[in-house]
Amino acid sequence: MENIIVFCETRNGELCDVSLELVTKARLLAEELGCKVDAIVIGKEVSSLSKTLFEYGINRVFCADDERLSEYLTLPYTRIVTSVVAEQHPQIFLAGATNVGRDLAPRVAAELQCGLTADCTELRIGECEDTAGVKHENILLQIRPNFVGNQLTTIVSTSSRPQMATMREGVVSKQRVDNPVAGEIITINTQSLLTEEDFAVSILKREVEARKSNLKGAKVVVAGGYGVGSRENFELLYRLAELLHGEVGSTRAAVDAGYCDHSTMIGQTGVTVRPKLYIAVGISGQVQHTVGMEKSGTIISINRDPEAPINKIADYVIVGDARECVTHLIDQLSK
């Protein structure tokens, strides 16, 4: 039985969380399929990361250790991944829906002429019927929100292998296996594989910006939507978040309206959060937002509209003006 291959992304010499989450997910899929999970790791001195991957249940690590690859570069990474996949014929290939994964996966898919689904929020094994009416078993059901309308769309690729998908960070929790696998490291000879043209684009400068907030790991999130009404009102959310030792989040509509910075966006194209307390202020609750916060502990919705979709998933609904409600909350919490 063909395996599942996960592209494991590294940052500053460490494995990214999203990669370990994907490996965890891939393991569950592999159990159902009765196959194993392999990983591809590319970078400088990355073979030492194999130990961690074995602890997460990886069977074989395809390792491309090359100091020219310490930072992600589209062309050489594509060539390495494509060559491993073409040689190993996995039935499924997964990568994180990060800036790197979303740069790499489509290129690999185009080279291999395979179907690819972006930004999945759920992956399952199931059966389906293709357009010609032929039944297929053990197919990867690739589920993602559909942006035009509150819908979840299930996509399959029955005719091409591997079935390829990118998955968002934070939708599954990473989990080690009870007993680390006595896995195998397979070294990729990058010297013979890569050509000079693969390095046509070079990095002149790279700057890591300090995270403005720790939204992903915050215990309390105060998030604002279009209904907050102004940038000035948005400042109140920062005061509320400060009182609760939390962070401020937002929706795409609030970002588009210029109320807050892009980095605060929660949802399908932003951060996925899972705080103990989520306060949604002036947020209607479109699916592209709720997929990023629905697993929160307690949800409070502050909305003028008693019928706002987000109220359905809220534990407390305060019907009223955003500014007034937030001001009252600040007053009460300051006591």
Binding site: V156, P306, D315
Partner: peptide
Amino acid sequence: PTQVLYSEPIVTESKGGVV
């Protein structure tokens, strides 16, 4: 190569939160 199998509306049952 990809095929949309189906789209399901996300119709959430209300949690019945305190109003």
